[in-house]
Write a protein that binds this DNA or RNA. Sequence first.
DNA 1: CCCTAAACGAGACGGTACGTCTAGTCTTATG
DNA 2: CATAAGACTAGACGTACCGTCTCGTTTAGGG
Lengths: 207, 207, 207, 207
Amino acid sequence: MIVTVKVTNEAPRGRPRSSQCREAILSAASEILKEKGFRDLTIEEVAARAHVGKATIYRNWETRGILALDAFMVDYLLLQPPQRGATLEEDLFSALAGWVAVVDGTPTGRALVGLLAEAQFDLELGKQFRDRVVAPARAAQRDMIERAVARGEIPPDTDLEILMDLLFGPAYLRLLEGHQPLSSAFVRRIARAVALAAREGVAVRDL
Amino acid sequence: MIVTVKVTNEAPRGRPRSSQCREAILSAASEILKEKGFRDLTIEEVAARAHVGKATIYRNWETRGILALDAFMVDYLLLQPPQRGATLEEDLFSALAGWVAVVDGTPTGRALVGLLAEAQFDLELGKQFRDRVVAPARAAQRDMIERAVARGEIPPDTDLEILMDLLFGPAYLRLLEGHQPLSSAFVRRIARAVALAAREGVAVRDL
Amino acid sequence: MIVTVKVTNEAPRGRPRSSQCREAILSAASEILKEKGFRDLTIEEVAARAHVGKATIYRNWETRGILALDAFMVDYLLLQPPQRGATLEEDLFSALAGWVAVVDGTPTGRALVGLLAEAQFDLELGKQFRDRVVAPARAAQRDMIERAVARGEIPPDTDLEILMDLLFGPAYLRLLEGHQPLSSAFVRRIARAVALAAREGVAVRDL
Amino acid sequence: MIVTVKVTNEAPRGRPRSSQCREAILSAASEILKEKGFRDLTIEEVAARAHVGKATIYRNWETRGILALDAFMVDYLLLQPPQRGATLEEDLFSALAGWVAVVDGTPTGRALVGLLAEAQFDLELGKQFRDRVVAPARAAQRDMIERAVARGEIPPDTDLEILMDLLFGPAYLRLLEGHQPLSSAFVRRIARAVALAAREGVAVRDL
DNA sequence: CCCTAAACGAGACGGTACGTCTAGTCTTATG
DNA sequence: CATAAGACTAGACGTACCGTCTCGTTTAGGG
């Protein structure tokens, strides 16, 4: 497959790529992703539903995975609600509970898992997933930690990454393995444990 | 697809199924799983490498996923080392460090993720994954908790499930998303945080 | 493309190729050839009409051209009538008139031209066309010449090839270029001219 | 497809059609015709080689076939040499030998066959082929017959069409089917046979 | 010791989807 | 307004696998 990416800043020649097209393709892909999941999302069907030639899809997206990521982002980002509580534990709870609401038993959740699996092999997809999903989420969560530091709840050099991994990791695990439900009791306890660890300085950088 | 499962205890008629066959298939599947990952494991290639007809594979395994699970188990179980330390934190550390050694940057790790993704759609695979991978692991870990209870380190009605999710979840997350390395500093801090939470009774059942 | 042709006389292994299949494909191809001509005969449509996978077609025929040749043969050979007259001119007339009836304004005629054009590029098709269409026709015509020799109408070492080219060439030309009709007056005159040339020994070998 | 044909004689508005363009297109088409033959001449490649938009080609030529005919004409006409001998047979021989030299084993010959095949389906191409290739050739050949009539070699009401079909038909046949070579012995005998037929009045109109 | 019946290898079968290519049309900016 | 460039819809190309099937060939019991 060949995807030409413009590098120079010459004047663009020929017919410009249609944004209508891109939107039709994304919304078709999004539909299929919800109905059938990532595994059964085929370029052929996206093209048919969007009334678009297959070449137009290949012209705009390098791989099926990256197309699916774009389609996934629409729903995933829209549903992420920001929250601000009085204590770190409250913030942690609402962040995790919000995520659980979006992914537990939903098409979005299944799509997320499918993308993660695909990203193990499609390295470009992995990179984009980190840049476009993980990094923005972490940036948004940084504020939560900073406010807790400002309140004096936790040490100033607390490592955001470890704390967020401790918070979301257990939930990812239950989402993936399905061995236990993502109940609100679970969310509450995880938030409490993470808050405790943070307060006790387990996550400070120079440990 | 039709897989006949014998229920009655009649005498088996005809040529018995060959265990040589099963082994050849499993080892071919295992090879491919390591070389190319779950996504690129095709029945066609397994059959060719094992010098076996495709029907023989379909006769013995319901789906590609379950075949891959069987192939995966060989490596995954062999490499799981049991450990017994002096404190809960030591035990948690060695358990997590052992798991990380098996999956971080290894074919086994990539296979694990592929299987988890497939299990979102192949429900039977999900069930078998829980029964044959998750459940035995948890059973093995139960001893670790019980010894900590016996030593008086943690409350007696501590919930194993939450504790193990707290321990392994963050590592799964880093394995999946690759946003941060599975360093030994990471493992150490996670073990410390989980031990702390356990001691403080965050995971007791009636919370 | 890869088409395996058996050369050795080993026992055949695996499922034998289905003749039903071959027949269904040929009759679908024949239909399309008549309806739309060689240019618009696509493997895709043959497969669809014959309720057959595309791979089955590619497994049995090297190229679209050779498939079309096989389909063409059915009609072309069936319609070739043998004739025996009292004089060479009568024989020549009935041979040419028979051919004209089969190809003038018929799907078979258009198919013939399409195959000839394709054969300019598909050398294997050209070879098979000569072996399976031209050579048998010439063999059948040889009898006509031999009888004329036996009757003493023409010299004994008359060259069949030249005579037949003189007979059919003009008709091919009108078929191809369509500049003049393939009328029965035309057929009559051509037969007379060829008979005359033959009698006068224009086609003897050592000329 | 839509081809706008100007009927009125209004003053032309806007940028005039470039003749440079037409030439670039024709010479690109001619190149490809020689390299790959008619079957593999694609509008896409012509446009690319001529540094021309595809629309410009469609604006100037109705079909691929007619473009190819235009490209073909350049070579075909250039190479047709006129000849004048002392007898009809000499004239016939030199006419046929000249044609054979142009088409036997040459790209021009293969292009000729491709065009003839295409013309079976593209009726407009067939018409243009007759008007621009066949008709001028016959007009040129008329002189040969008239001179033979003037010399008293052949009857005055000899049918040019039949005679030329008898002359060129056999050569077309060998060109198409390739069953026998277009040797000079072949050309000589055909010329002799046609001259004989003409002398004997086989081609007179009221036969 | 043959008979029976299922398992075996091989690979053909009807399908689906792949990623590429070309057709013929449409839409920009440029001349 | 013609042009070069190239994006657009449409659909065929030849390939790779899917899961099923149909062969001829083993390979065990049970008669």
